[in-house]
């Protein structure tokens, strides 16, 4: 992958995540694409792996995430999109990782190993430690 070719989209994605989502609008549902693969659904069926992508033609990158609310999103890895689906092409590894992390995070919340802070913007370990080991 040529770094020069993807440098501009990386910058766009960085601005999109920090300024538009982080500072201005929040993690609105319309900023995300959700994978429909039933394998990726956690048991509750309420959360799915999302892709953060800027909504214009042929945006080449995909960043996987778990969107829990308008103010809490867990970012995972991503990659250049080369296949038709997230499971194919270069994104397959990042997508598979995102699924594993998502299942583990949701399980940890259900088992109260993790909780969401009062302001709804961060996770904390059950003992209030900021460092989280899944």
């Amino acid at each position: 992958m040529s770094l020069i070719r993807i440098l501009n989209p990386i910058e766009e994605l960085a601005v999109f995540i920090t300024r538009k989502i982080g500072d201005e609008e929040g993690a609105l549902e319309e900023f995300f694409r959700f994978e429909n693969d039933a394998q990726t659904l956690p048991p509750t069926g309420r959360h799915r792996i999302g892709e953060i992508t800027i909504n214009y033609g042929n945006f080449p990158l995909r960043l996987f995430c778990l969107r829990l609310s308008d103010s809490l999103v867990v970012l995972f890895n991503g990659c250049e999109k080369t296949g038709k689906t997230a499971q194919g092409g270069r994104t397959s590894m990042a997508f598979s990782e995102a699924n594993r992390f998502t299942k583990r995070i949701l399980q940890a919340i259900q088992e109260k190993e993790l909780y969401i802070s009062e302001d709804g913007r961060t996770f904390r370990n059950f003992d209030d430690n900021k460092e989280i080991i899944l």
């Binding site: 501009n8 766009e12 300024r19 538009k20 609008e25 800027i54």
Partner: peptide, 14 residues
Amino acid sequence: KTPTDVEIFVDKYT
């Protein structure tokens, strides 16, 4: 290092 025009583009497009 992000150029201003990229910031403007993302802002307006979103």
